[in-house]
């Protein structure tokens, strides 16, 4: 069959030529796919609304030699709030970039699709920074990159009073093992406990959590270090979040 259907979120849209776009989609059925949308920037294009970043749509795609092309697109959800508030736009870009960076093309991950769709819907309703941390740890878990938070990743013993996060080790170290390693990040027990809660809790319940500023800061440092260790680069959208004073 030359034509096939997917339900997908648009992660990125890059302009090529006059009015064409290369879209990076994250579909429920086939994971990440890159497709061409001809004429999508023209005011009269029927696909225009559905191919905007962060929107969720049903796509009818046509197999091509290099890239598949968008034959039809039926918009399902647009998340208009993400385009009306600067901070939400910045965070939505960050979540989309994370999914793009951590996934390979053609590998189906329906749970990641659901997570991203739900997160886009909740941005603006749940404490944004906390939602972002929960998204990060859940995404890492779904894709097999989760830091070990339960016990010392080196000796398997209890973490003790002041655990240390170590990116190279892959998670938390007890103070005794941490003394043998360089470059760890000392954190509180509360930070580790909150990270475990974020992992277990449904995103809609996050407003019940009220971690203090120090815990928020430590969680951000741990997750960012962990992701940068695995990706070997920084997210470009963080630069934008910093510009608008929202990187917390």
């Amino acid at each position: 069959m030359r034509l096939y259907k997917v339900s997908a979120l648009v992660l990125k849209a890059v302009n090529i030529r006059e009015a064409d776009l290369i879209l990076t989609l994250f579909s429920r059925e086939r994971g990440k796919i890159r497709v061409l949308a001809y004429g999508a920037c023209k005011p009269g294009s029927r696909k225009r609304g559905a191919v905007q970043p962060f929107s969720c749509a049903n796509f009818l795609l046509c197999r091509g030699r290099d890239l598949d092309t968008v034959s039809q697109a039926d918009l399902q959800e647009m998340f208009p709030a993400l385009r009306e508030r600067l901070d939400l736009l910045g965070y939505a870009s960050y979540l989309a970039e994370l999914v793009d960076a951590f996934t390979a093309e053609g590998e189906a991950a329906p749970a990641v699709f659901e997570l991203l769709q739900q997160s886009f819907g909740l941005l603006g309703h749940i404490q944004t920074a906390l939602l972002t941390r929960a998204f990060e740890i859940k995404l890492l878990t779904l894709l097999g990159y989760r830091p070990c938070l339960e016990s010392c990743v080196s000796c398997g013993g209890a973490l003790g009073g002041e655990p240390v996060y170590h990116a190279g080790a892959g998670g938390m170290l007890c103070p005794r093992c941490a003394a043998l390693q360089h470059g760890g990040l000392r954190c509180r027990r509360g930070t580790v406990a909150t990270l475990r809660l974020l992992l277990r809790w449904d995103l809609r319940r996050l407003n019940r959590l009220r971690p203090d500023d120090a815990i928020r800061r430590e969680m951000r440092q741990i997750l960012r270090r962990h992701m940068e260790y695995h990706l070997e680069r920084r997210m470009k959208s963080l630069q934008f979040l910093r510009l608008i004073g929202e990187d917390y």
Partner: peptide, 14 residues
């Protein structure tokens, strides 16, 4: 009226 244009407009408005 796309993501980049909206981001720029919101930033300038701020």
């Amino acid at each position: 009226p796309n993501v980049e244009g909206d981001a720029t407009a919101l930033y300038l408005a701020r």
